[in-house]
Computed example of a mutant assay.
Amino acid sequence: MSDLTIAIDVMGGDQGPLVTLPAAMLAIEKSADLKLILCGDNTLISNFLQQHQLEDHPRLSIKHTTDVVTMDEKPSSALRTKKDSSMRKAIDFVHSGQAHACVSAGNTGALFSIAHFVLKTLSTVERPALISALPTHHDDKHVFMLDLGANVFCDSSVLYQFGVMGTVMAEQVEGINKPRVALLNMGVEEIKGSDHIKMAATLLSENPDINYVGFIEGNDIFNNKADVIVCDGFVGNVALKTCEGVARLVYQKLKSVLSQHIFARLLGRFFAPTLKKLFKALNPDQYNGASLIGLRGIVIKSHGNAGVTAFTNAIFEAMKEVERQVPEKITKKLEHGITNTHLS
């Protein structure tokens, strides 16, 4: 796609412009067809561009904003009072059609609320979801997991829709043919789980376009037993943060062991770069960018503490979803799938 335009929330995230601006510069260097709208403080952005001799770059433009959505701000407050924030303006550009997508590392709750309010959901979608590709034991394979925190509780029809949306993401973003879809549950037996989980399983299994493979337990999330894992936002967020905590625990324990005596310290110094790279890759929150799917536009959420490389990856994720027309294909898949289930 030529002239692909993405709006960047420059001020969002734990480090804001210290990360977002270098990432924007890197993305522009790597993609000749990319245009960026930088939403944030004009003086700050202009000074950065001048320092890097980019003030007249034809594929960079600035939208000055006066407000910033802080990381601890209540979503309702951000939606009501921060209409001139960098986050709101980035989403507004998607709504107006001036940008094909937006990327933000800001407050997740505020981003979800503003995006939902401004963009609205697709006609066949009850609720949008937060989805991300996570690593598996196989270096070249990922698993998409949703919802990661946008919806605390989801009934069977919403979980069914998540399965369809996750299928489209796996097909279009990862190129997986007939991705395997599983429901995260407390056991793999059909009798396990709540009534809405069991009904969601029935709905997914009855859709011939969905390759439903059954229930999956938390200890198999990264074992390549599914390409898409579906759950409600409460369960998904707890699972994600638990995995992150375990990765950090293992890293700290190993670091402690390797510092106990001189031989271990020598080994630790030798393997330190490899170990740091490994555990960063296993940290789910740092893995690429999460997408708010089910909206009438593409919104990518980068982790608030992401570095330059991670935020750049989030921009590339947005580009990929635009090029593959993910929202349009979700709509088509759901419209077709609904006629083949009890939801009709």
Rank of each mutant, 00 (worst) to 15 (best):
L26F: 07
L184W: 02
A290F: 04
I330Y: 09
A7C: 12
K320L: 13
T274D: 12
M25W: 04
L278M: 14
D147A: 10
K333M: 08
D14A: 02
E73N: 00
H52N: 04
A310C: 09
V158M: 10
D92V: 13
E126K: 13
C243G: 11
E126Y: 15
V94R: 07
L146N: 11
G16A: 13
P128W: 05
A310F: 08
K141L: 14
K332C: 13
D227M: 06
G245L: 06
Q161E: 14
F215I: 03
K120D: 10
R59M: 04
R324A: 04
H303A: 03
Y251K: 06
E206G: 13
H196I: 14
F112Y: 05
N107C: 08
D195K: 09
R127V: 11
M11D: 03
Y212A: 02
M25I: 09
I191Q: 15
E217G: 01
L79C: 07
C102P: 11
A182P: 08
D155K: 04
S256G: 12
T20L: 04
D232P: 12
I210L: 00
I8D: 11
V308S: 14
V94K: 07
I229S: 03
K89G: 02
N283L: 04
Y212H: 06
E29A: 09
H137R: 15
Y212N: 01
N283M: 02
S31R: 15
D56S: 15
G297K: 08
L4N: 05
